[in-house]
């Protein structure tokens, strides 16, 4: 087991290095730079700025320095947010995005899984149609529309919740629902189709023939096997949702991390582009590793680390 995990970590580090390298050079290829605007800076001031942020060093030296600093988890100063480092930006934004994202994932699982199970068990009957109707809507309606509708009806018409901003449990409800719409619907569909597949398996027929109670068949033999695709989806979903959504955070004015994934590129804020990319990659790689480990726990067919022993 330890050996497997060590091997995976080594591979992950390699993947991270590739991501860092490709992102670093790709971002420098985009035309434009961090200190440009409709108003040009006088050349001497530009020179001061470039010197301060070491942008006039040769590119390879900048790359080497970045890697060295990265090993110490020093992500460098933001060019745009003066006086703040990229570490500061992540430390401030991530807990907020993660709290919101965590709740959204809970909603998706608590609603999506039961909805999928019920519609599979009642296939072709009204609960199935109802659940699939809503999940089709959930998949096709983008989060910003859901967010706008929620804000219009719940805040503007009914005055039940504050329209936007962050800081109290009241502020969490609407963005969490908006954020969970798509994953809930996706999980429900995933769960349904995977349940249907499992229900058609021979071992279920065997279990039935043995005369096991229905509840045991569904709980022990069906759901346990059917949940594997959901667990697979949960890895990348968690990484994506915990790091924040640009759209939802923008609409509800939430000071999370999501906006930096988009605005840093417009601003050519190189250190922030690198920082959030590295951070997201680490999260994604780690969660995928956890998902792979979870398979071994959930699925008896998968043996990750017995092969050689």
């Amino acid at each position: 087991m330890t050996q497997y995990i060590l091997r995976r970590i080594a591979v992950s580090l390699l993947v991270l290095w590739v991501i860092v390298t490709v992102t670093f050079f790709l971002m420098r290829i985009i035309p434009g730079g961090p200190f440009q605007g409709e108003k040009k800076l006088p050349p001497e001031i530009r020179k001061n700025i470039e010197e301060r942020y070491k942008l006039n060093d040769p590119l390879l030296k900048q790359y080497g320095d970045y890697l060295t600093n990265l090993i110490h988890w020093d992500l460098g100063p933001s060019f745009k947010y003066k006086g703040q480092t990229v570490n500061d930006i992540i430390e401030k934004g991530f807990p907020i995005s993660a709290a919101l994202g965590g709740i959204a994932i809970m909603i998706s699982l608590l609603v999506g899984i039961p909805a999928g199970i019920i519609s599979a068990l009642r296939q072709g009957r009204w609960p199935d149609y109802l659940a699939m109707f809503f999940s089709t809507i959930g998949i096709s309606v983008p989060s910003f529309i859901l967010a706008t509708l929620l804000m219009y009806f719940i805040s503007y018409k009914l005055h039940l919740l504050p329209s936007a901003l962050w800081g109290s449990p009241k502020h969490v409800i609407m963005p969490a629902i908006a954020l969970s719409g798509l994953p809930t619907a996706f999980i429900a569909r995933l769960m349904r189709s995977s349940m249907l597949e499992v229900l058609g398996q021979d071992y279920i027929k065997t279990a039935r023939a043995k005369g096991l109670p229905k509840i045991v068949i569904i709980y022990r033999h069906t759901i346990k096997n059917a949940i594997i695709p959901v667990v697979t989806y949960l890895g990348p979903l968690t990484a994506a949702i915990l790091t924040g959504s640009f759209v939802v955070e923008n609409i509800f004015a939430i000071p999370g991390l999501g906006k930096h994934f988009v605005t840093s590129i417009y601003n050519r804020d190189y250190t922030v582009i690198m920082g959030v990319t590295v951070f997201y990659s680490i999260l994604l790689v780690t969660l995928n590793l956890l998902v792979d480990l979870a398979y071994a726990v959930i699925d008896p067919r998968i043996k990750l680390f017995e092969a050689k022993e």
């Binding site: 709290a99 965590g102 809970m106 504050p162 800081g167 109290s168 449990p169």
Partner: peptide
């Protein structure tokens, strides 16, 4: 595990302090 994570995130979200309005 899910329930634990959920309650933790609610706590984190609740820690934001006073309401800003």
């Amino acid at each position: 595990a899910l329930v634990v994570v959920l309650s933790m995130s609610l706590v984190i979200a609740g820690c934001g302090g006073d309401k800003p309005e």
